[in-house]
Every structure is written in structure tokens, then in C-alpha cells.
Design a protein around this nucleic acid. Structure first.
Length: 883
RNA sequence: GGGCGGAUAGCUCAGCUGGGAGAGCGUCGGCCUUACAAGCCGAAUGUCGCAGGUUCGAACCCUGUUCUGCCCACCA
């Protein structure tokens, strides 16, 4: 009689929101400050406020939630620190786009008003992604939610900036930087994406001064010749050995520029002569510095040609290229143009082609910071998992370049530096200064640039805990326990948190960094909105339920491999969730509420002892897997156990007593059922929080939320290894009979008579003692079990190990069919014997392999041989009959 | 130009420190057996990318090779 209050199929929608609200109401996500429990802390990779939940978030947060829920059940004081990132450029772009719809630019509204608008936007939509995280079941301590632009974190940012400046680790300098003409800001090297593009390599003729002869230079960017200051050749290049000291005339411009030697020039490339444009190319900038060349900036911040571009002034850089080429052509100065594929930099936000531009920016001197960050991973204080990512980390850290942290946008932490118009001095201060720190002039104005978004997120592990104040939370939870993130932000974020954490907290920010895979589309491509290949997690949740979705992600999260999400797989786990639901229906409908919690004294059946032992083993194995971030193994173990051991075997044996009149055994089975359901729910809870809570709430005697229950331990259960062995024997007999049934097409409703020959006394006794299960599971009417017997007439025989199960099938046997079956079986066994015997006849194997391995093989051969012998007997039996 | 990962059953993927390979879905056959047809029982299926090597023994270790994906990089 099923539990009528439980629907036949599990309906996620009916329960998910209800339980999430309950958890919130009961404050079950809240960290304890202070606490007697050991701390466990994860800081969330803060999603962008403007963002919406994508697959990456879903995976990332599911894994974190699994860890947090698991650790809570293991008795830890868990803080999962949530929050969002202001995401400077991304957010500004979004709000700007919104304004554009009304045909208004940010300049129309002005900086202050614009920032106000962004805050308004944030108020309105900033909670969006947070709600989506909640939908996923995330058990973050929302009472501690932070935002990278909130007051406390802004204070931390200022503190860090000022201190680094005072330590000489932040400086301002003239450099060639990556400029996005569309976003109108400098970008860090990391924010530039390089892409291969089809283009042309142009060979241009630069005439020598007072001569008709010319030097040919190769370039992909003819328009930059307007800013050329020299042409460089390699000193080793014999072709040009006598050139330096001479001058060439810059085409179109008519200006004379020197030919110089620089070993940077590659003699193999192009013509071996390189035009040098110090203001618009990073390499040329360096060459220019060496030779003290003029920096002629001809392209402005909008990507247009400026006043120094002469007649090309006002043209877009690409238009200018075409016009210059036309002009060169006319003058016969374009020697040739050849197709050329090379990679160009693009803005990671808007994909606009980057313009290398000479500009004054703020930088963090990273080398001293990186040293400590390298050391911490080298010594194992922080572990990066899987380990292969440590190499990537080291590689980047060892070659780290100074970090450009200023951005010419409005949304972000405004740099706390003030320029003095009187003396030109810079005042850097946490508080708004009233006067110049140097000349006391009040004629000061604040830097208009804001900081790179990653500057504030670099402080996340300690700023969210209250730094720079000395808070109790900081004391308890720093260093945090684990960081769970994708490798795409290993440099952007993880590396910088390491540097900042070690510098300001003088300790690592986290002990473990678990790098998970990226969720990709069916072709293995990174999912992105611009590619249009995104699968919306919320649609998946709507369709399959959160628990199935989470389980799928966990099961897919094998280390070091990307995830190509397939819907079939999600569907498979939905079936699993439903299976759990239905097994609970069966169990709950049979519980009467009077089952004692731990009744050690009760008489345990073989299946009881077996399943309890397995419950303990699986609890241990799942624990170990989770401790090692092997989410897929943990999920797989729980799945296999719950479905194929508990449901397929134990529940079926339990029915023997559930539907019987033996009150004593009935009660014992009910106890085991309750214990198992409880255990399975608790093991599954980190993966599928909603359904487990729902069923838990219906479990008699279970008090409060499952979140507060303990994770099962192996010591909680009976541990009886002989029961596991005996159960295997029982299963062997049942499987043998089922196999015959299937192969011989015996209708399931037909009960069979069997004669079992089992030479081993102990095994035979196991079957005799547990015959009721064999009868039930294999649908057997009568069984005759002997140490030895002759094969009955009209029987088919299943052989397993040295045992034979003769099944009487009067009139049902097709002799040929049976011979075929036996032959097939024999061939299979023979193949195995051959393999093993080959080994045993190998002297090398016997000499060198470990004794236990050899023993195993020998044993295996013996068993197989006994088996094939029985099969042969059976075959000859049928061969004696002529059909 | 460097570096990393993947190639295993029709599909999507597991396979820990080397001892004859597994799951889900799909396929085939049989079942509406009172938890579940989103289910049950049974079955089939792979020279583990290719070629060498190390080893008594290789999907796993080494070398080379082919395809494929990714990351990093200042060759115009």
C-alpha cells in the first residue's frame, strides 16, 4: 500500500521553493561566529551583477554547494561567502546600451548622473543572478552577502591602493597600452583576446633621401606609417650593412627618418626592414626607447586619425589605411600586397580591435608579489587541483608583467589619487584630501580613472570577511578552505588573490584551489552568448528539476576534462531522482513509526547484514571521494548503491517479510529499511538537496532539517564482510536462474522447479538458509539442494563457479537451442581460461609477478575449469539426445 | 612559436598509483510481478586513435605520429 500523500512520480516544482524558503527561515545557511566547530569556508567566485546564470555558474556553484552541505553534515562550521562583482566595463556597457535605446550617451548625462543610473540598475537587476543561485539550491550565508562596490569593500580597496603606492608597488607611467576605442579605456594584457584574422602584408617603398632608390618595408598596418620615427634593420643583415646613418623619406608625409640598427629585427621576415612606430606598437615602443626616437601619436582614443595625420585627420583608422594605400599606389610606392594571416588583439568585452596606444596609466609592480605567490604553491601551502594546473600557474607567475590597473571608465573604484595643479605632485590618500600633500595647495583634482574590476576581486577572500578591520570572522575563516573555480580565471582572479592575500594577510587565501572543467556545447566549443550556443540552466531546471540537474553536473565533473552537456544524461539522472522517490514511497508506506532508531539486538537476516555493511562502506567511499574533489566518483558510488544494490536487491528481499505475517522479522526489516532510507538520503543530500529534504520530512523519527543531520559514517553500521560474500553466493544462484529464464524465454509468471548441486558445504548452507529469497527473486516453486546429484531429464543447467542449477523445463526445451546456448557459454569461459593459462605458462610471469597476483590467476583458472567441465557434461547430455 | 588536454561500446563519458574494460542513453528479447513502464528481468556490442618501445604483463608508463580542442606569446 503506497503512501497516498506521495505522488506516483516526483514533481520537483511542488517542493523546491518550499524547502529553500524553509532553509532560509530556519537560518540553516548561517555560519556561526564564534563556534566550537572546526571552520570550513568557501568564498564564491562573485558573479557579475549584470549577469544571468549560465552553465559555468551552475557547475561552479553546484560543486561548491555539494562541498558546503557535505561539510556541514560532517560537523563543520561552514561559511559559504556569497556576493557579486561590480564588473566595471561589462556593467557600464550594459547601462550604456540601455541609454542608447533612448539615444542618450553617457556623456550626455555626465559622470555623476551616470554612476547613479548604474546603481539604480544594480538595485533593480543585481539580485537577478542571486535569485538564480538560490534556485540552484545554493546554501550561501546570504546574511553576509557582499558587493565589490559596497562601502566596506571600497574601504579595503582604498587601503590596499594606498599601501601599495606607499610601498612603491603601485606607480604611474607612460606606456604603450591596449586601448579599446569602443569602450574608451585601457585594458590589461589579459583582457585582450588574440584572434587569427585574414589580412594582407603590404610591401612599401621608402625612398632614400635625395635618391630614387628605395628601401622596402613590410607592414600589416600602412596607416601607422604616419607615426613612423625610423626604419630598423638587423645589424647582422648583410643586405643593409651600409644603411644606418642614412635617412629615408616617409611616403605621403615627406619627412626624413633615420635607418637604425636593432637586433630585434628578424632578418627572415618580410624584407628584413621594419618600420618603427613607437606610439602605436608595443615592440616599436621598446625599440624607440632604446634609440630615443620621437613618439608620434597619430591615432586618437576613438581610433581616428588625429591632427598629426595631416590630410587624413578625422578618418577612422581603417578608412585611413585604404586611403593611404590608394595614395601609395598612385605614387608607385606600394610594391606589393600579399595575403597574410596573423593574430590581432581584440577587446574581451566588445571584440573591437585593440589599438596599442601611448598613454599614462597606473600599474602594479607584480614581480615582488608574485614571488611569494609562487612560493606558497611550491611549498604546497596552497594546493591547486588537478595538479597540472600548477604548471600553468607557475608559467604565468614566472613571466608575469606589470599589471595595468587604471581604466578610463566611470563605473568602478575611483583611484584615490589627487593631482595638484600648482606643483604637479600626486597625493594618494584613503580619505579625500583638502590640500596637496606637497605644496598644500587646495587646487587639487581627483584622478578620473577607476580601477580594474579584478583589483577589488583580488581582495575578495579577506575583504568580504571584514578586512581591514580585525573581525572575528576573519579570524575564524581566513585562510579559507577551498576555492572552486574554472581555469578561465586562474590568472585574472586566483593568481591575484594569491598575491594580495599573501601580501596583506601574510597568509595564503585558501588551502585548496579546485579547478573544474568548462561546460562546453556539443562540439566542445565554449558556450557564449555571442556564439549563440548557450543552454540555459534555468530551462534545464524547469524541465528536469534542480536535483537531477545538479546530479548530472556532479557526475560529469571528472577532473581535468571539459563537459559536453547532453540532455540524455540529465534525463537519466531524473530517472534516478524518481527512483529515489519511489523507493521512499515503498519504505515510508511500510514504516509504522514504532521502529527503534538503532536496534542492535534485533535479529538480522543475511540481506540485512549485507546491505548495512554496504551502506557503511559506501558512506566511507563517498566521503573519501568528496574529500578529494572526485565529485563524479562520489555521485557514481551513491547512484550505484542506491539503485542497484538497495533498490534492485535489498528492497526485493525485504518484500519477503513486509508482506508476511512474521511480525518479528517484519519489524527487523522495517528497522533496516528506515536506517537505509535515512542513510541514503543523507549521502545524497549534498547532491540533491530538495528531494532528500522532502522525503526526510516524511521519515518517522527524523527531526528537523536533513541539513542538520550527520553524514553517515562506516562506524554507524554493522560491518560483516562474510555477509557480503554470502550475499554474492545468493546473487549468483538467482542470476543463474534469471539468465536461463531470459535465454529460454520462460514467462516471468511461470514458477520453476530447480535442483541445485553445490559441492561447497558452507555455500550450500547459505542457500538453504536463505532459500526464501531465491524463491522470491527467481520465481522458484520448489528447490532441491544437494552436495551432489545427477542432472535431471528435461532440464537446463546454469553453471556458476563449481555449482550447477538444473532447471526443469518439461516440454519447453529446444535441444538445439540449448546446445547453442551451452556452446556459447563454453566459448566465453574458454577464452578466459586461455588468457589466464597463457599467463601461467609464462615463466617470466611466475618468476616476477607478485605472489598474490599469481594466486588469483590460479584460483580463477580452477574455478573456470570447474565451470567449463560442468558445461561440457551438460552439452554431452544433450548430445546424447537426438532431435 | 611555446605549453596543456582529449581520442575507450552506436552516442555522451568513467576507468585511482600497470594484472584482460565499465556506466547512462540507445539497440535486441521478455514482462503492466500490488514503490517506480521515468519501471523490472535478460542479452548483444569495443585489435581502448596509429606505430614502435619498456615490462612476465600496457587503455594506463616512454618515444614518435595523425586528428581534435584549449591556453599562453611583442615577429612587423
Amino acid at each position: 500500500m503506497p503512501d497516498e500523500t506521495m505522488a506516483k512520480g516526483y514533481e520537483p516544482k511542488d517542493v523546491e521553493d518550499k524547502w529553500y524558503e524553509y532553509w532560509l527561515k530556519e537560518e540553516l545557511f548561517k555560519a556561526e561566529v564564534p563556534s566550537d566547530k572546526p571552520p570550513f569556508c568557501i568564498v564564491i567566485p562573485p558573479p557579475n551583477v549584470t549577469g544571468t546564470l549560465h552553465m559555468g555558474h551552475a557547475l561552479n556553484n553546484t560543486l561548491q554547494d555539494i562541498l558546503c552541505r557535505y561539510k556541514r553534515m560532517k560537523g563543520f562550521n561552514v561559511l559559504w561567502q556569497p556576493g557579486t562583482d561590480h564588473a566595471g566595463i561589462a556593467t557600464q556597457n550594459v547601462v550604456e546600451k540601455d541609454l542608447m535605446k533612448k539615444n542618450i550617451s553617457r556623456h550626455d548625462v555626465g559622470r555623476e548622473k551616470f554612476i547613479e543610473l548604474v546603481w539604480e540598475w544594480r538595485e533593480k537587476y543585481g539580485g537577478f543572478i542571486i535569485n538564480q543561485l538560490k534556485k540552484l539550491g545554493s546554501s550561501c550565508d546570504w546574511s553576509r552577502e557582499r558587493f565589490t562596490m559596497d562601502e566596506g569593500l571600497s574601504r579595503a580597496v582604498k587601503e590596499v591602493f594606498v599601501r601599495l603606492y606607499e610601498e612603491g608597488l603601485i606607480y604611474r607611467g607612460d606606456y604603450i597600452i591596449n586601448w579599446c576605442p569602443r569602450c574608451q579605456t585601457a585594458l590589461a594584457d589579459l583582457e585582450v583576446e588574440h584572434e587569427e584574422r585574414e589580412s594582407f602584408l603590404y610591401h612599401l617603398r621608402y625612398k632614400f633621401e635625395n635618391s630614387d632608390e628605395y628601401l622596402v618595408v613590410a607592414t600589416t598596418r600602412p596607416e601607422t606609417l604616419l607615426g613612423d620615427s625610423a626604419v630598423a634593420v638587423n645589424p647582422e643583415d648583410e643586405r643593409y650593412a651600409n644603411l644606418p646613418g642614412t635617412h629615408v623619406i616617409l611616403p605621403v608625409v615627406g619627412k626624413a627618418i633615420p635607418v637604425i640598427f636593432d637586433k630585434y629585427v628578424d632578418t627572415e621576415f618580410g624584407t628584413g626592414a621594419l618600420k618603427i612606430t613607437p606610439a602605436h606598437d608595443a615592440n616599436d615602443f621598446n625599440v624607440g626607447n632604446t634609440h630615443d626616437l620621437e613618439r608620434v601619436k597619430v591615432i586618437d582614443e576613438e581610433g581616428k586619425m588625429n591632427e598629426l595625420a595631416g590630410k587624413y585627420q578625422g578618418m577612422d583608422r581603417f578608412e585611413c589605411r585604404e586611403r593611404i594605400l590608394e595614395d601609395l599606389e598612385k605614387e608607385g610606392l606600394l610594391e606589393k600586397k600579399e595575403p597574410y594571416t596573423h593574430s590581432t588583439g581584440h577587446c574581451y568585452r566588445c571584440k573591437t580591435m585593440i589599438e596599442p596606444l601611448l598613454s599614462k596609466q597606473w600599474f602594479v609592480k607584480t614581480e615582488p608579489l608574485a614571488e611569494k605567490a609562487i612560493e606558497a604553491v611550491k611549498t604546497g601551502k596552497t594546493k591547486i587541483l588537478p595538479g597540472t594546473w600548477e604548471n600553468v600557474y607557475f608559467d604565468w607567475m614566472n613571466n608575469i608583467r606589470d599589471w595595468c590597473i587604471s581604466r578610463q571608465i566611470w563605473w568602478g573604484h575611483r583611484i584615490p589619487a589627487w593631482y595638484c595643479d600648482s606643483c604637479g605632485e600626486i597625493t594618494v590618500s584613503k580619505d579625500v584630501p583638502t590640500e596637496c600633500s606637497s605644496c598644500k595647495s587646495t587646487d587639487i583634482r581627483q584622478e578620473t580613472d577607476v580601477l580594474d574590476t579584478w583589483f577589488s576581486s583580488a581582495l575578495w577572500p579577506f575583504s568580504t570577511l571584514g578586512w581591514p578591520d580585525k573581525t572575528e570572522a576573519l579570524d575564524i575563516f581566513y585562510p579559507t578552505s577551498a576555492l572552486v573555480t574554472g581555469f578561465d580565471i586562474l590568472f585574472f582572479w586566483v593568481a591575484r588573490m594569491m598575491m594580495m592575500g599573501l601580501h596583506f594577510m601574510v597568509d595564503i587565501p585558501f588551502s585548496d584551489v579546485y579547478i573544474h572543467a568548462l561546460v562546453r556545447d556539443a562540439e566542445g566549443k565554449k558556450m557564449s552568448k555571442s556564439k549563440g550556443n548557450v543552454i540555459d540552466p534555468l530551462i534545464v531546471i524547469d524541465q528536469y528539476g534542480t536535483d537531477s540537474f545538479r546530479y548530472t553536473l556532479a557526475a560529469f565533473a571528472a577532473q581535468g576534462r571539459d563537459i559536453k552537456l547532453s540532455e540524455e544524461r540529465i534525463e537519466g539522472y531524473r530517472h534516478f531522482v524518481n527512483k529515489i522517490w519511489n523507493s521512499a514511497r515503498l519504505v515510508l508506506s511500510n514504516l509504522e513509526g514504532n521502529e527503534p532508531d538503532h536496534d542492535e539486538s534485533r535479529e538480522l537476516s543475511l540481506p540485512d547484514k549485507w546491505i548495512l555493511t554496504r551502506m557503511g562502506e559506501v558512506s566511507r567511499d563517498v566521503s573519501v571521494a568528496l574529500d578529494e574533489y572526485r565529485f563524479n566518483d562520489a555521485a557514481g558510488l551513491a547512484y550505484q548503491f542506491a539503485w542497484h544494490e538497495f533498490c534492485d536487491w535489498y528492497l526485493e528481499t525485504a518484500k519477503e517479510w513486509l508482506y508476511s505475517d512474521d511480525e518479528k522479522l517484519k519489524l527487523s526489516v522495517r528497522c533496516t529499511l528506515k536506517e537505509l532510507l535515512s542513510g541514503i538520503l543523507r549521502i545524497l543530500h549534498p547532491f540533491m538537496p530538495f528531494i532528500t529534504e522532502e522525503i526526510w520530512s516524511r521519515l518517522p523519527g527524523a527531526e528537523g532539517s536533513i541539513m542538520k543531520a550527520s553524514f553517515p559514517e562506516i562506524s554507524d553500521y554493522v560491518n560483516d564482510s562474510s555477509a557480503v560474500k554470502d550475499m554474492a553466493t545468493l546473487m549468483g544462484v538467482v542470476n543463474g536462474i534469471r539468465n536461463i529464464r531470459g535465454e529460454m524465454n520462460v514467462h516471468p509468471s511461470k514458477k520453476m522447479d530447480i535442483h541445485v548441486e553445490m559441492p561447497d558445504d558452507k555455500e550450500r548452507q547459505v542457500i538453504l538458509d536463505n532459500l526464501c529469497y531465491v524463491k522470491n527473486l527467481a520465481r522458484v516453486e520448489s528447490a532441491d539442494i544437494q552436495k551432489q546429484m545427477a542432472k535431471p531429464e528435461a532440464s537446463v543447467t546454469a553453471v556458476f563457479e563449481g555449482n550447477q542449477i538444473h532447471i526443469l523445463l518439461k516440454g519447453l526445451i529446444d535441444f538445439n537451442e540449448e546446445k547453442r546456448r551451452i556452446n556459447k557459454e563454453m566459448a566465453k569461459v574458454q577464452k578466459e581460461i586461455d588468457g589466464s593459462e597463457k599467463k601461467l605458462s609464462n615463466k617470466g610471469f611466475l618468476d616476477k609477478a607478485p605472489a598474490d597476483v599469481i594466486e588469483n590467476v590460479k584460483e580463477k583458472v580452477a574455478v573456470l575449469k570447474a565451470q567449463i567441465e560442468k558445461l561440457r557434461e551438460n552439452l554431452s547430455f544433450f548430445e546424447g539426445i537426438d532431435d
